[in-house]
Each structure stands twice: as C-alpha cells, then as structure tokens.
Design a protein around this nucleic acid. Structure first.
Length: 379
DNA sequence: ATGTGC
C-alpha cells in the first residue's frame, strides 16, 4: 500500500514516496488542487513528483473526463532503450561523442518514408522527426553498470542507447488548440473527446517513431545495429473501463519493462513494474529522478564561468555531455535533479517495481548549435 | 515543452 491517503471530501490522493524523499510543498499542493477538481476519482503521486506549469509532474490521475492540461504540451513524450551490437570496450568515448553530434541535426533521410512506415498520417511537424528537441530531452550512450536480474537478457558487455523525446511541435499544437478552446475537461464519448483522443494517439505514435528514429540514427552514427529493449510514454491519457487515466511524468506499469533515468550525471535503471502493485498507484510508476530545482535558479547553483561550463560537459563517470546551448547546459545540470537512488528505493519499498539492471552514462547528447550558431547568439 | 523570435 501507499502512504495513508490525503482525504477530506476530495478525491483520494495516494502517494508513493518516503518521508526522506525530497518533495516540494508546491507539488503536493498541486496534487491536492487536482484532487479537489470535479470529476477526479483518484490521484497517485510518485517519488519524482515536482511542480509543473499545468499541474503536478510525476503523477497519475484517474478522472471521469479528459483533462488536456494534465497531459501537457508534449503528448507522447517518453523513453526508448536499445542494446547496440557493439561492446563498450570497443568504443572510444571522445570519438563516439563526436559521431553522436550528428544526430541532433535535422534528419536528412526519407522522412515521408519513416512517417509512412510508422503508419502515421503526414503532419506539418514531420521535419522534426528523428531529432531530440530541447528541455530535458536527450539521447544517451550508456554502459551497463550492473545486472540484478539476468532473466531479461541484458548483456553486460554491450553499449546501450536511451532516447528521451516526444512529439515536438505536434503535441505543442495539440495543447495550444485546447487552450484556445478554454482548456476545459472533455467527455471522452463526445465528438470533441474523440477528436482529442485521435490527435493525442497520433502524437503518441509520432513520438514513439521519433524515439526509434533517434536511436537508429545514434546506432548508424556509431556504425552498429540497435536491438529494441523497451519503450513507453510518460505523458499520455488512456480511456479505460474505470475512467480516463492521465499520466503526467508517470510511466506505465502494465506495458513491460521501463527505464527510470537518473540525471545525466547519475545511473539510470531498467525496472520491472510489479503486477501485484497496489491498485491505488493507477498502473503507473515514476518516470525519472524528477526535478529538484527550477531552471531559473540553476545558474546560481552551478555557476556560469567557463570552468563551470567545462565541468558540466563531463559527467562524474568520465563521460561526455554534448550540449552547445549554454543556458540548457546549466538548466539541465545533474544538480537540478533528485538523487535517482531514492526514487528507485521508493518504487521498491512501495512494491511498484524491482530493478533489472542499471546503466551509467557515457555520452549524453542534447542541443547542438546549428551551422549559423543561432542558438548561441540568443544568449 | 515549442518548425523555441524581433
């Protein structure tokens, strides 16, 4: 079971974090505000809970209607993990980092073919397919740190690739269209409800195709092949028999293995969600470490000098960080995130998941400046 | 988060 629910006439709020886990009061307040809204049935807060723009991040919300705000502006955002057919010992980190820079450039392959192969309708945002995007998105080359459960076939020697990205302009346009209409809850069985779910499902499938293409580009850049391990979305909504289930920064516990990434300076974990987890967790688990500090405060925390930036371009394992956007380099510093070990410990303590394997980052690719260096000029 | 903006 989770902690005793917060109950006072509102929908029950079940939380799955210990008293030792850093949770901002503002995030708990947002959770309680959600629970007080009409038509909300149950709310589940995960150990990576933190405040968000349209509501708390790191939670699952069961409601009678669709709340586009709970899905947020990046429907379909999620993680995909692949095993590369190259052993880590054969990789030179600096060479790999140089090669991986290329994947942040626009994809110059057959985008229309990729869209068709994924069974997607063309959209106005397809030119971004296969690219990482901004914010907390990344593509990471990893080494296996430890395999706790050998039954899933994780090979200790192989390098892995983890893609964290979403639906780019597609999901953004979807939320913008809802804001125009007043951002109110929608009956899933109404015509607008069906239209939202249709556009949402399209964004989720686009985001999935995006992650697969990012990983394929990474493998191609490293001259190797990639074998699929797992993938899921942590920003999405699902019309189920028991209601409308929203996951905002929450990974599904009913769709196989899940990667719960730490910051770019910490381990990431492959976990097996447990089928006998408490129902109050709403078929969900944490989606990552969760932010500890807001973006704006990070320059003051990690410094903004040249040597500060140089430190941020390495990780504590001797790996590399490719991020040519100075502000982003600082905003997404490892210090901005909670320690992942606590999040994993909570998932295990509350019976939500167990660890299969852990990974350490070798190269994290984020923004790369384009030819004209425009992203740097803005700063 | 954002085909990220005058």
């Amino acid at each position: 079971m989770g902690n005793p629910p917060i109950v006072d006439g509102r929908a029950p709020v079940h939380t799955f974090y210990s008293s030792k886990t850093w949770i901002e009061g503002a995030a708990v307040h947002q959770l309680e505000q959600v629970a007080a809204m009409p038509g909300i049935r149950t709310v589940a807060g995960m150990p990576d809970l933190h405040p968000g723009k349209y509501g708390p991040v790191g939670c699952a919300i069961l409601a009678d209607r669709i709340h586009p705000a709970f899905v947020g502006s990046d429907a379909g955002c999620g993680m995909a993990l692949f095993a590369l057919d190259v052993p880590v010992r054969k990789l030179r980190i600096d060479k790999a980092a140089e090669r991986l820079r290329d994947i942040e450039r626009p994809f110059d392959g057959d985008i229309r073919g990729e869209i068709e192969a994924a069974g997607l309708e063309p959209s106005a945002f397809d030119s971004a397919l296969g690219t990482i995007g901004g914010g907390n998105h990344f593509c990471e080359l990893l080494a296996v740190e430890d395999v706790v459960d050998t039954s899933f076939g994780i090979d200790r020697s192989r390098a892995h690739v983890l893609a964290h990205s979403g639906s780019r302009g597609l999901g953004h346009a979807l939320l913008e269209s809802q804001i125009t209409e007043g951002l109110h809850p929608i009956d899933p069985d109404s015509e607008p409800g069906r239209a939202y779910l249709h556009a949402h499902d399209h964004a989720v499938r686009w985001a999935t195709a995006n992650r697969l293409l990012i990983a394929a580009r990474a493998a191609q850049a490293l001259r190797c092949d990639a074998d699929f391990v797992c993938q899921c979305s942590h920003n999405c909504v699902e019309h189920r028999a028991d209601g409308v289930l929203h996951r905002k920064g929450a990974a599904p516990s009913d769709q196989g293995l899940v990667v719960v990434p730490g910051s770019r300076g910490a381990l990431s974990y492959l976990v097996e969600p447990l089928s006998d987890a408490p129902l109050e967790a709403l078929a969900s688990i944490a989606h990552g470490a969760g932010r500890k500090y807001d973006r704006a405060s990070m320059a003051g925390r990690v410094g903004a000098t040249k040597s500060d930036r140089e430190r941020l371009m390495r990780n504590p394992f001797g790996g590399r960080v490719i991020c040519e956007d100075r502000a982003l380099l600082v905003e997404e510093a490892p210090e901005a995130y909670k320690p992942i070990a606590g999040v994993i410990a909570d998932l295990e303590a509350f019976g939500l998941a167990r660890v299969v394997a852990s990974f350490r980052p070798l190269v994290t690719v984020k923004r790369v400046a384009d030819e004209r260096g425009r992203r740097e000029e803005r700063r």
